[in-house]
Amino acid sequence: MRSISDTIERLGKLRSAHGSSPLFDDRLTDLGPFGSNRGALEAKIHIPKGLMPRAPLVVVLHGCTQTASAYDNGSGWSRLADDYGFAVLFPQQTRSNNANMCFNWFEPGDIRGDQGEAFSICQMIETVTARYDIDRSRVFITGLSAGGAMANVMLATHPELFAGGAIIAGLPYATATTVPEAFDRMRGHGLPGTDGLQALLRSASRHDGPWPAISVWQGTKDHTVVPANAVAIIEQWRGVHEVEHQPATEGIDRHQKIVWRGKDGREALELYQLGGMGHGTPIDASSGYGTAGPYMLDAGISSTQHIARSWGLIASFEKRVNLDSGKSYEQPASTFQSPYPSGKGGIQQTIEKALRAAGLMK
């Protein structure tokens, strides 16, 4: 078992690669003032030229040791925004808040809707939404690692703000309140059971629906934030979405996607399991969106493109394979809708095995 000091050292080794003089074209600009900023964060934006009124907004949260610009260069979000006409907001951590540039997803003063970093991000969103005439019904959020955990914080505390969220190698909401607890949860130790996870989510706001659709991305060989956390995030959101217990499974770009549909037939929850991938954001360098680097992993699948498609930001057709039936489908991408029947057999065993490993099921 790694010590806390060892993990911090490992996370900090690549910090110099994302210093004040990046070796790439910085496509982001400062947002400027955005309110009281109780969480003392910074804000970067990318607004495509000729942005149309009522455009969507994507909020992107970087991981530890990264900056907003470095994460944008690796993930390709601003280039996708240029091609498809949506705005992108990049909250950025400061070293005075966290020496490793991690969003403080475990600090009680930063994960409440009207406090700290969460409140600052809300203020950024309100500023961008008003200034650029954003469609308030099409605001989305995503993030990696600590940024993924903070994206989950925002989805839990302000679900009314978001149509959807994508959590990459992140953690469930409010399961840690100290640094030692945070590292334990990253390793999969001490995660609450399903009832506890869902109670934490319901206590985060007074919201009673509709709820944002949730997409979870996880490398199967991630030893920094272990896969048990991805399962716990799904369990945390499964209650409010009232999804079918039996999911459907499909193969996408040599990886696996598991889908839970709500009563209306829409895809409410989805889990991407990236076979053999470690800790980072999956990209496809050949797509033209994103560049491989530290924690930006060329896994042959562009999470940026797939996430944007699931949110209806990109209109395209994809060939998919239902792993339960073996049949292939050509489906127009739309916002969290699925034509696939519920899965059977093997996938249920896979989910139950993961739940048991996480201590969420006996």
Rank of each mutant, 00 (worst) to 15 (best):
A17W: 07
E126C: 04
R138P: 09
G85F: 03
K13N: 06
R38Q: 14
W77D: 02
I141T: 13
R95H: 10
M124T: 07
P108E: 09
E107K: 15
D110L: 08
V153R: 02
E117L: 02
V59L: 07
P108M: 07
S145C: 10
S20N: 13
L80A: 07
I125P: 06
D25H: 15
F119H: 14
V128H: 00
V88R: 07
N152D: 12
R112L: 13
D114A: 06
R38H: 14
M124N: 02
N73S: 13
A151Y: 02
A151N: 04
M150Y: 01
T127L: 01
V58D: 05
I125Y: 05
N152W: 03
R95D: 12
G76C: 06
S145R: 04
D135I: 09
F106Y: 15
A17H: 13
T65A: 13
I45P: 06
P22L: 00
Y132W: 14
V153W: 00
L89Q: 03
V128C: 01
K13D: 10
G116L: 11
C64L: 01
Y84W: 09
R138L: 06
R131Q: 14
M101R: 14
R38S: 13
M154F: 05
D83H: 10
N152M: 10
A146W: 07
R54V: 02
L80I: 00
R27T: 06
E42Y: 05
L28E: 05
L80W: 06
W105K: 06
R54Y: 11
G113Q: 02
D82A: 10
G148Y: 04
G74F: 08
R27H: 07
R79W: 01
E42A: 12
A81I: 09
L14N: 13
A149C: 07
G32A: 00
G116Q: 04
G19L: 01
L61R: 05
D82M: 11
S96H: 12
D135W: 08
A99V: 09
R79S: 15
V58N: 04
G148H: 12
D114E: 13
G63M: 02
T94R: 15
V59E: 03
K49H: 14
Q115G: 03
S75D: 08
R38F: 07
R15G: 10
Q92K: 06
E42H: 08
P56I: 09
E117V: 01
D25M: 14
A55G: 10
G148F: 15
S69I: 08
S20M: 12
R38N: 13
G19A: 11
Q93I: 03
I45Y: 08
N37T: 01
Y132P: 01
H46R: 13
D135R: 14
P22Y: 02
G85W: 07
C64M: 11
L14G: 08
P91N: 02
A70P: 04
M52Y: 11
A151W: 05
T142E: 04
F90V: 08
A40I: 08
T65E: 10
N100R: 13
G143W: 09
I47T: 10
R79T: 15
A130L: 15
N100L: 12
E126A: 12
R95Q: 13
E107T: 10
G35I: 07
A87S: 09
A151V: 03
M124K: 07
H18D: 12
K49F: 08
C122G: 15
D25Q: 15
R131H: 06
S21M: 11
N152I: 06
D25Y: 13
